[in-house]
């Protein structure tokens, strides 16, 4: 009875399914973290969203890390309320902060490439802290390099003015890089994948 399908069904191989599943969960986690923050003293929100981008590259490598962020972007365009303040739609991607959202695809790919130094990811245990740090710095630079000019263009501002407006956020991102390196370098066995 089941013989009839055997020739026509082209199964996706186990490795691809595993990476797709990882990309899906990191995309979903990024979507959830975009709505999640803890309040620092003085009421300043500490957003968790960059962790999604960072770990997409670190856990999945350049190709699947970038793919994961593409899924995040598309699911928001498709209408899931995954952008900041629970918004959705292509209007957000084309709006003032849309450059940051688009940059995630490239940033995750760059983080993966620098940290793993190959297209195929290696085990997180084997990643040197120096490489991870370098990857995160490069990735963050890409986020600002795409996000800030985009912001300037949409707002009709000069680039320095837009950069001045965004500069305070860089402090938080530096802290998030340090936290991320701490998690990876801590040899956290929770993050090991078979």
């Amino acid at each position: 009875m089941s013989q009839e399908y055997s020739d026509s069904v082209d199964l996706v191989n186990a490795g691809t399914v595993a990476y797709l599943s990882g990309a899906v969960l990191i995309a979903a986690l990024t979507a959830v973290l975009a709505q999640f923050s803890i309040d620092l003293p003085g009421g300043v929100p500490f957003s968790f969203q960059p962790f999604g981008v960072f770990f997409a590259g670190i856990l999945l490598g350049p190709i699947w890390g970038g793919f994961s962020m593409l899924l995040y972007l598309l699911v928001g365009i498709a209408g899931a309320p995954v952008f900041s303040n629970g918004t959705a739609g292509v209007g957000i991607v084309l709006g003032p902060t849309g450059g940051f959202l688009i940059s995630y695809v490239f940033a995750a790919a760059a983080i993966g490439l620098v940290a793993h130094r190959s297209l195929a990811p290696v085990s997180v245990d084997d990643l040197p802290a120096v490489g991870v740090t370098a990857g995160l710095v490069v990735g963050s630079a890409i986020i600002y390099a795409i996000g800030v000019p985009w912001f300037a263009e949409v707002q009709g501002w000069t680039l320095p003015r837009a950069a001045g407006f965004m500069a305070p956020f860089a402090v938080g991102d530096a802290i998030k890089i340090a936290i991320t390196v701490g998690i990876v370098a801590g040899g956290n066995e929770l993050l090991e994948r078979p």
């Binding site: 082209d10 996706v12 399914v17 599943s21 899906v24 973290l33 968790f48 991320t180 993050l191 994948r193």
Partner: peptide, 29 residues
């Protein structure tokens, strides 16, 4: 922040492993 992020990642990756098996069991093609 490190603790919350690590736990969230670990749980998500465990779900990814189970999803991966479930997709294959249903002939993901």
């Amino acid at each position: 922040a490190g603790r919350i992020t690590t736990l969230a990642l670990a749980r998500s990756m465990a779900r990814a492993d189970r999803l991966s098996v479930a997709l294959q069991a249903r002939c993901f093609a």
